[in-house]
Amino acid sequence: MTLGFAISTFVGAFIFPFLISMCWGKMVEAWGAIGGWMAAGFIVGTTWALNHGVGFIYQSGALVDQAWAAGVGLLAGAIYSGASLKKSVPTILSSIVGGAIAAFVIAMSG
């Protein structure tokens, strides 16, 4: 991976959790559940287009690059802001189980 790919991958991976932490909650507060759906479409869709359409993220075969970026970025942001890592363990474990189930379903359908 070249330095340019490394920098663009870092930037692409940073944008996703940054937008989630800055916008998603505010959209839900302002518009309720429909705001969550709008956030999902706008934030995830726009970031996906930047990362995969424009090519910010250098992809070497992983299918979960944005999921890793969101998970690691939001966890790091929460820890940096003073949240407890211990309280996030059930969410992390649930995410791993959900990801494993999703990977299994995708593997079986193709």
Rank of each mutant, 00 (worst) to 15 (best):
S60V: 07
A78T: 08
A33P: 05
T46Q: 01
A67Y: 10
Y58R: 03
L63F: 15
A76I: 11
G73Q: 03
I43S: 01
G55E: 05
A33V: 14
A30S: 13
G61S: 11
V28E: 13
Q59E: 15
G55V: 03
G77A: 14
L85S: 11
K26M: 06
C23E: 11
F14N: 06
H52M: 11
G36M: 08
N51Y: 02
I57D: 08
A70F: 03
A39D: 07
S21E: 10
W37T: 07
A78Y: 05
A76C: 14
V64G: 10
F18C: 07
G53R: 05
I79Q: 10
G41N: 06
A33W: 15
A78D: 08
F18V: 06
H52N: 12
I79H: 09
H52V: 06
Y80T: 10
A76W: 08
K26I: 01
H52L: 04
V28Y: 09
T47Q: 04
T47N: 13
V54A: 12
Q59H: 12
G73F: 00
I57P: 01
A78P: 00
V72M: 13
M27Y: 04
G41E: 08
S81M: 11
L75E: 08
L19N: 07
G25F: 07
A39W: 01
I79R: 12
A67M: 13
E29N: 15
A78N: 10
I15Y: 06
L63Y: 15
A62M: 09
A30I: 03
G12N: 04
S21M: 12
M22K: 12
G55F: 04
L75P: 00
A70T: 02
H52Q: 10
L50N: 07
L75K: 04
A69L: 05
M38F: 09
S84M: 04
A76M: 14
F14L: 15
C23G: 06
G41H: 03
V44D: 07
L75N: 09
L74K: 08
G73I: 02
G35Y: 05
A69P: 01
A30R: 15
A40F: 14
M38R: 05
G82R: 03
I43A: 01
F56K: 00
G35H: 07
A40L: 15
G53W: 03
F18K: 02
H52T: 03
A40T: 12
